[in-house]
Design a protein around this nucleic acid. Structure first.
Lengths: 140, 140
DNA sequence: TATTGTTATACTCTATAACTATA
DNA sequence: TATAGTTATAGAGTATAACAATA
């Protein structure tokens, strides 16, 4: 995704942020495609593995996905046999990884680890340690 | 957009990049809404002001927007009286700002300048100078 | 032959409103 | 009363294929 040297927008932090995220997400999507997972699918798998017994709403809050949009996402994962919905009470249900989900998660981890490493490697060493802290400051 | 402290994904550069871009773009969209412009509309206005007589295809290449998707975008801007299409030859046409487009551009500049300043201000000073260079490295 | 502008189309992502059942 | 899960829907953003006209 080459940046024209005379692009007057490239110096703007917001614009650079948008373009970089766009390019990186396109790349990650392609790498996840063989697993038949989208980026948000992969994040859900990683999250429910790390924090057990989360409800759909809690996952949505943690990943900034609307409650309503969690439904088709979880339906997809459930249809693929990667998660199960287990009742907590008659209103809420815990999202838990199936064995297949756990196996798929290992593939996800392999791909995302490689992806994150490649991403960091493209950032010059003197800027690298500042990258995640700067981004996190924008999320506070 | 608070980041849960126990979010296991927040440390991942790719994930943080996605979330930060998502949050910032939502913010900028809201700030541009009073001008009745989308983010890509605003970038087109800024680009054609900086580099005169660009064709639709050239703008698309510079901003990473597909040729086909430029059509409704430019139709919208033309319909709002902000740009004109002026023939270069019988195949290509230059996109030029109208007077109304120039006036709107000044409002865009006011909003984006403020937005970019606010964005940078949220990044701790020691990380700030590394932010844009890191992002640009991802776009090379 | 390659490129410009265009049409049509489809898929993803995201956002909102409203409903029900339950806490 | 507030929350969880859900349905339906709409708005954006993005991607591809194909076509006519022109360079």
């Amino acid at each position: 995704m080459p940046q024209p040297p005379d692009d007057p927008l490239g110096q703007l932090p917001g614009y650079a942020l948008r373009r970089a995220a766009q390019a990186m997400m396109a790349e990650l999507s392609q790498r996840l495609a063989p697993l038949d997972l989208r980026i948000s699918d992969a994040s859900v798998l990683m999250l429910v593995a790390a924090r057990r017994d989360m409800t759909s709403s809690e996952i949505g809050k943690a990943l900034d996905i609307q409650r309503a949009n969690m439904v088709p996402l979880l339906n997809r994962l459930e249809g693929a046999g990667l998660i199960r919905r287990e009742p907590i009470d008659r209103k809420s249900q815990a999202i838990v990884l199936s064995d297949a989900g756990l196996a798929r998660l290992e593939q996800v981890r392999a791909i995302t680890t490689r992806f994150e490493d490649d991403l960091l490697a493209r950032i010059p060493a003197q800027h690298r340690p500042h990258f995640v802290p700067a981004l996190q400051a924008l999320l506070d």
